[in-house]
Nucleic acid binder design. Structure first.
Ligand SMILES: [Zn+2]
Ligand SMILES: [Zn+2]
Ligand SMILES: [Zn+2]
Ligand SMILES: [Zn+2]
Lengths: 159, 159
DNA sequence: TGAATATTGTTATATCATATCATTGCCCCA
DNA sequence: TGGGGCAATGATATGATATAACAATATTCA
């Protein structure tokens, strides 16, 4: 994607979904973990669009085809998907988003549009190295970080 | 504070509390908003240490001297304190922390120690400008951001 | 004073997440 | 091949975080 391409722009989203699921299958095979039907279905639901989605929204959708689904069903699937780097939690929204950079070891950086709800994952080395430097200068050893940027995406500014 | 001074290091914390409350009174007077007894007491409780504290922890403490305190009591005080830039919410912990840079318009950047729980607020221009640049390059207009860095503070690495 | 507004009280409920134990399914190897 | 061990799911209950809605009280200011 060129820099200016945002998930808020029109695109063939079925390709996003197919890619995400294909990559997930590959990753899980490589890691020798099981992408069970429930887990795969939840991942598919998360990838329905580029907006973070809440656990109970997912539950409601899952329950339409899976009567036994209860909160632990969803949270277990979400835990699995997070542990394997397939999704991110957006902390400021208690919601979950498909990872756009599976495989690469990274922490998330997200541009979240407050108008349309779309979240774009970016991975800016200059940001992470600035954080590393600032932390190091204070003797702080980074394990992980959360970066959630709120504002208006390009599409929503034009309205 | 020199760069290496962290709130995890020993210091006369009563000065932190006194400063925070004095500044809060000043700010509220300037902004012509009312730092009522409940609000001031909640701010004092938040400043009891440098660790983010949950709303229900605060409620429990407040309730010891204020029988009528219920969840809305706390959340209203927290809303007020946030609106006036006196505290921050740590999204990844659903907890609240006194603002270390009152007055200056800023978004928070936090170094959160997973061992001792202490959170240090920093304000690195290089980080915020890196975010600005990355966003601008994508046509995204920033309103606010959340940066929460997890790891080990200097004191906890030595153990 | 008395109306308008801000703050607090009160009750109920919405929303997000986990603990615990039972049951089922999968895998590997004796 | 069958059965022990572990992973995954089912089921129930509860914990933790946050807000809605309306009533009562306090403050402000004309
Ligand atoms: Zn898409
Ligand atoms: Zn990612
Ligand atoms: Zn202190
Ligand atoms: Zn601050």
């Amino acid at each position: 994607m060129p820099l200016t391409d945002s998930p808020a722009q029109p695109h063939d989203h079925s390709l996003c979904i197919d890619d995400a699921l294909a990559q997930a299958r590959l990753i899980c095979e490589r890691r020798n973990v099981r992408l069970t039907p429930i887990r795969e279905q939840v991942l598919g639901l998360i990838w329905q669009n580029h907006k973070p989605v809440g656990a109970y929204d997912l539950l409601e959708q899952l329950a339409t085809t899976h009567q036994a689904a209860k909160p632990p069903t969803i949270y277990r699937a979400l835990d699995f998907l997070q542990e394997n780097g397939l999704i991110h939690k957006i902390e400021s929204q208690n919601a979950f988003l498909g990872c756009a950079h599976v495989g690469g070891q990274h922490h998330g950086q997200f541009l979240i549009c407050t108008a349309c709800g779309t979240a774009q994952e970016i991975d800016e080395k200059v940001v992470s190295s600035a954080l590393k430097n600032a932390s190091q200068a204070r003797g702080f050893q980074i394990h992980s970080f959360v970066i959630e940027i709120k504002g208006l995406c390009a599409a929503c500014q034009d309205i």
